[in-house]
Design a protein around this nucleic acid. Structure first.
Length: 433
RNA sequence: UGGGGCGUGGUCCAAUCGGUAGGACACCGCACUGUUAAUGCGGAUGGUGGAGGUUCGAGUCCUCCCGCCCCAGCCA
């Protein structure tokens, strides 16, 4: 008896097969039983007649939701079944029955956020959550595929770091060996600047940690970033790369996850519109645009949620905002030679209110200027010695960016909250499960 | 870190002015040969986040604590 997955059943129509999985739900109608099985690849409805298979009927009828089973049956195309195919069950082996006294806690009805997050380890079994995690897998796969195609080498950055990367946000401090302190990285960028000088075009992909007390739907304390860095690259090269990366993530998800996006009821027309070129506007132009919309932000201010919403709602695809005032950007940003008060940096704002998904730009390659910026930002010199070395030994212009994986996936899936798009979200007040 | 809000059976909610804490779902049983979060009837279980206060009487009012959510800030 071939063991197949539910996503493969269509190609076994008319044949007897075996499925391994869980009892997702069950309905009874007189002498007919409609168990629904899931195995991680999908859900299929079974049908059992009491008259024809009394033993199988009794076994399944006594089973509780999410009990684990191995079922055998004949695959039949049937329009009445969700998914178009159903399983005429001929045999069932119970692997574990959940006792009636302690039923499975997640119902197919509505639940509150707190309860679901407290039961995240079980919540991920529901079709919507499983679909999100599959889209996450596809989007990440596509991102790495694209980077590889573009000739970028994966050189991951360390998680333990001796100090802050940007010095602005709060870091998680951990005990290291022998009473030393280490910090969880908030960005791998500084390290890919080093590997870029070694390998040319590189990127890192990994978690980043921020001890900020951010409590919005766009923030996690632990999240994933993809950070490319390339020697000799300029700001325009990076805008082009980011545009290509985002487009590839979107288009290949559309192509390879149509079922998941349908489960999520995502409006795919909005995603299909995401093609290069993305609109590019300067910070100056963005300020003008805001003023035309009656927003009072004055030149020199950074943009908040309201401003991002106004800017991104002008376009049907992500918008790139470039050349922000140096004062509101990180210490390592290269000033624009034509207007030193501006930094050669850019952000990409996702449509539909998903906010900033990319931030990047050119880095300072001059030793003296970088030293000056470290002092201005009151950062210690010692932990950055190696970083300064990069400006002493064959310094070249270079640029890169960071892409927030969860924000991007929240946008692709249409998730209300970023915490739904990572298997086990970590937020300021939640460390369980 | 500021501002706002919410904690009631396992879950989702209701409870008028301070006056007997209730329903639905889940679970169990019965009925139903095409159900789609099935439906109908019946059953058992079980709760006001915690401490104190006001009151004849507190889910409801007051104080403190705990937990969580939303918005802003910071950022990806």
């Amino acid at each position: 008896m071939p063991v197949v997955t539910i996503e493969q059943v269509a190609s076994h129509a008319g044949k007897e097969i075996t499925l391994r999985g869980w009892l997702y739900n069950q309905r009874q109608s007189g002498k007919l039983l409609f168990p629904q099985f899931r195995d991680g690849t999908g859900v299929i409805q079974g049908v059992v007649s009491r008259k024809e298979s009394p033993q199988v009927f009794e076994t399944l009828a006594g089973l509780t939701q999410e009990s684990s089973v191995e079922v055998t049956g004949v695959v039949r195309a049937d329009e009445r079944a969700p998914g178009g195919h159903e399983l005429q069950v001929t045999g069932v082996t119970v692997i574990q029955k959940i006792p009636e006294e302690t039923p499975y806690p997640i119902q197919l009805k509505e639940h509150g956020v707190d309860f679901l997050l407290e039961n995240r380890h079980l919540w991920i079994r529901t079709p919507r959550q499983a679909a999100i995690l599959r889209v996450r897998d596809q989007a990440i796969f596509a991102a790495r595929e694209f980077m590889h195609q573009q000739g970028y080498v994966l050189t991951d950055s360390p998680i333990f770091t001796p100090s802050s990367c940007e010095g602005t946000t709060n870091l998680f401090e951990v005990d290291y060996i022998d009473e030393r302190k280490a910090y969880l990285t908030q960005s791998g960028q500084l390290y890919v600047e080093a590997t870029a000088a070694a390998l040319g075009k590189v990127y890192c992909f990994g978690p980043a940690f921020r001890a900020e007390r951010s409590k919005t739907r766009r923030h996690l304390t632990e999240f994933w970033m993809l950070e490319p860095e390339a020697a000799f690259a300029r700001i325009d090269d990076m805008m082009l790369l980011a545009e290509g990366l985002i487009t590839h993530m979107i288009q290949s998800t559309l192509e390879r996850c149509p079922r998941e996006l349908a489960t999520l009821k995502r409006d795919t027309a909005k995603l299909a519109a995401v093609r290069p070129p993305f609109p590019r506007i300067s910070y100056d132009e963005a300020i003008e645009l805001l003023h035309r919309h009656g927003n009072p932000t004055s030149w020199g201010d950074d943009f908040g949620g309201d401003e991002e919403t106004i800017l991104s709602s002008e376009y049907d695809r992500p918008v790139i905002v470039h050349r922000y005032p140096t004062a509101i950007k990180a210490f390592y940003m290269q000033p624009d030679p034509e207007r030193p008060e501006l930094a050669l940096g850019f952000d990409i704002l996702a449509p539909e209110g998903y906010g900033e998904i990319v931030g990047g730009g050119e880095r300072i390659s001059n030793y003296e200027l970088l030293m000056e910026r470290l002092r201005q930002n009151e950062l210690p010199e010692e932990p950055f010695r190696w970083y300064l070395d990069l400006r002493r030994f064959g310094s070249v212009p270079h640029a890169g960016f960071g892409l927030g994986v969860e924000r991007t996936i929240a946008w692709i899936t249409g998730a209300e909250h970023i915490r739904e798009v990572i298997p086990f979200p970590r937020t300021i007040y939640r460390l369980y499960p």
